[in-house]
């Protein structure tokens, strides 16, 4: 049996991809299953989906802890983009480390003989993870923007998976996408996703990455029974695990969700405050001295509303780059 974890963000289609992967395996007369992380996550939030492929019936219904393969739909999630760079002292950080960081060690539990399939513009030998392991890399965001018009990288990454692991053929992936995406999104969109998968397959580079990279340990507040407040009535508090209770979302690094980010031209800004009002995430700060606004990239999800509402075109949206 082969176990696969797909890391993505809400809206990138990690769950649909897992289902299409299972469907592809079934087209090869294998047995397969796919399931979501059963969360209530919104668009952009980190999500996980799981798939298993085997020759015979799969009995376990538990989560996957030791995957053979990981597929990472978004470069941020593998820590390939550093959103918090230069944010020491931000209210959402503790000692310079974002407490609600989505940056995770995607190699956790990964089979050393397995592989990581990554959405990144870098070739395998320029990728550094915690484990020295086989990786397949492809710039899936660019392919998705070209073929679909928005950064849903799921289908493209299935192509990359086929190329990297050879667990299923690209032909079966195409069938799986037509089967699963076709049902949910219609045939036209499914066909565009097949195209993305093919491009993903063609452009994927396979090689070994370097290992030994350390990820800040993620501390999660998991108190014993006696430490939990009765009735879940919780007040605002700072703990070694970060903030809890009222106001504690300030530590959530939602900036890692974005594909584009806004740049403000102070010269053009008339300080009308429309962007300040219309930002759903409170990322725009007023700078009275300069009569301009600042952007808090720690939270900015890159929706682009600020740029749209600006009456003097002082805000432009720029594609996020790795680095």
């Amino acid at each position: 049996m082969k176990e696969i974890i797909l890391h993505g963000r809400g809206g990138q289609g990690a769950v649909l991809a897992a289902q299409a992967l299972a469907s592809a395996a079934v087209f090869e007369d294998k047995y397969a299953m796919a399931f979501p992380h059963f969360g209530a996550e919104r668009r952009g939030a980190p999500v996980a989906a799981f798939a298993r492929i085997a020759e015979g019936r799969i009995l376990t219904k538990a989560h996957i802890y030791k995957p053979d393969y990981v597929i990472v739909l978004d470069p941020w999630l593998a820590g390939l983009v550093d959103v918090a760079k230069g944010m020491e002292g931000h209210e959402g950080t503790s000692g310079g480390v974002p407490m609600g960081s989505v940056k995770t060690d995607i190699c956790q539990g990964l089979n050393k003989k397995g592989a990581a399939v990554l959405n990144t513009a870098r070739p395998p030998d320029e990728v550094r993870l915690s484990l020295e392991v086989c990786v397949g890399t492809v710039d899936a965001t660019t392919i998705a923007l070209e073929t679909l018009g928005h950064p849903a990288t799921n289908s493209c990454m299935l192509g990359a998976f086929a190329k990297t692991t050879e667990e299923v053929s690209i032909g079966s992936i195409e069938k799986g996408i037509m089967d699963v995406f076709g049902e949910r999104l219609g045939e036209g969109i499914a066909e565009r996703n097949v195209k993305a998968a093919k491009l993903g397959f063609e452009r994927t580079e396979v090689g070994m990455c370097s290992g030994g990279r350390e990820f800040p340990a993620q501390k999660k507040w998991l108190p014993d029974v006696d430490e939990l407040p009765p009735g879940c009535a919780i007040r605002s508090q700072d703990t070694e695990y970060g903030k809890l209770g009222p106001g504690s979302t300030v530590q959530n690094e939602t900036g890692s969700w974005r594909t584009f980010h806004p740049i403000v031209d102070d010269e053009k800004c008339t300080y009308c405050m429309l962007c300040w009002f219309h930002c759903p995430d409170g990322c725009i700060g007023r700078v009275p001295d300069k009569e301009s606004v600042s952007v808090d990239y720690f939270y900015c999800k890159g929706c682009g509303i600020c740029s749209e509402v600006c009456p003097v075109d002082a805000i432009t949206m720029v594609r996020e780059v790795e680095g």
Binding site: R43, S248, T249, N252, C279, P280, R286, K301, C303
Partner: peptide
């Protein structure tokens, strides 16, 4: 300037509801 409804909430990018509520 201070938020009553804090940043770091997990509404979708571009959410009209979050815009209204904050």
């Amino acid at each position: 300037e201070e938020n009553i409804f804090s940043s770091g909430h997990t509404a979708c990018a571009g959410c009209g509801a979050a815009m209204a509520i904050r």
